[in-house]
């Protein structure tokens, strides 16, 4: 299997005199179709790593090292060094992203249908009636009821769980080969979380996408990822198969993480690594 994503010696630092390193010499890769969990405490550099992969680190931040994204045709792009215009061309089709706060990840003043229409138009060439149908299909695919009404709504007019479903639809619209989900369920009610996780999992499976799933919730990551990267203070502490990380952590820090979610142990025997289904037993 070829690599979807190869990160080599990635560092992210603040511009300016002190130039603090927020992400420090991170390397890991992700095979085509693989699901990778990234876990670590708040401030460990998970989101910055994700932004670096997207090539979207802003103003006071800059990256060094290399991040090779496979474009699917044997070609790759380095999102650290590629110019912005080149990235505008490949983002969307190659990589999509879902963020923690669904309310913030959609434009508050633009109708949901209009926001969805743009990537469908740009990357998949839909126009006019076909475009309208594609928007409704995209909303239906993420199991939203009454797609017509939702398409006409502003984001503050739908519920939290529905917002995240819309954000997922938006991330999937351009049919990316890699989906980055940065704590997609943290801001949601426990009752809604399981449904959103299930949806993400189904989407990844049906489309054969690769997934980078960021969270500080070990049980959630264990339920969705084949492999886990543990981060702390901007560095990678440990990388390994999910099952191995859970059952035989090598590093002290990983052990404390696993220990902290000891409750998970009871669930483990029934769930071989890489299996499907949400970990939290939320009934929807």
């Amino acid at each position: 299997m070829s690599a979807m994503l190869e990160i080599e010696n990635l560092s992210v630092h603040l511009d300016g005199p002190d130039g603090r390193r927020l992400v420090d010499d991170v390397s890991f890769d992700l095979a085509d179709g693989q699901r990778l969990g990234v876990i670590g405490e708040s401030g460990s550099g998970k989101s910055l790593t994700a932004l670096a992969v997207l090539g979207l680190l802003g103003h006071p931040l800059s990256a060094s090292g290399s991040i090779r994204l496979s474009l699917g045709d044997g070609d790759t792009v380095d999102t650290v060094s590629a110019p912005g215009r080149r990235l505008d061309g490949v983002r969307g089709r190659t990589v999509g992203a879902v963020f923690q706060e669904p309310l913030a990840s959609l434009d508050p003043l633009m109708r949901i249908g209009a926001q969805l229409a743009w990537p469908l138009r740009r990357h998949r060439g839909f126009r006019a009636d076909a475009l309208r149908r594609a928007v409704l299909d995209a909303l239906a695919e993420v199991q939203l009821p009454e797609p017509e009404r939702i398409a006409r709504s502003l984001i503050h007019e739908v519920s939290g769980g529905q917002r995240q479903r819309v954000a997922i639809a938006l991330a999937l619209a351009a049919e990316p080969r890699l989906l980055i989900a940065d704590e997609p369920t943290t801001a949601l009610d426990v009752t809604v979380q399981a449904g959103v996780l299930e949806l993400l999992q189904a989407a990844v499976e049906n489309r054969g996408m690769s997934l980078v799933f960021i969270s500080h919730d070990l049980p959630v990551v264990a339920g969705i990822a084949d492999r886990v990267v543990v981060m702390r203070g901007g560095r990678v502490v440990e990388i390994g198969d999910t099952r191995r990380i859970l059952t035989a952590p090598r590093e002290e820090y990983t052990r404390t993480l696993v220990g902290a979610s000891r409750a998970l142990d009871d669930l483990l025997p029934a769930r071989p690594a890489g299996s499907d289904g949400p970990t939290s037993g939320g009934t929807e």
Partner: peptide, 12 residues
């Protein structure tokens, strides 16, 4: 985030 999301889908 919605700007990041939009740029992620390739908006110039």
């Amino acid at each position: 985030d919605f700007v990041t999301a939009s740029r992620t889908s390739g908006t110039g």
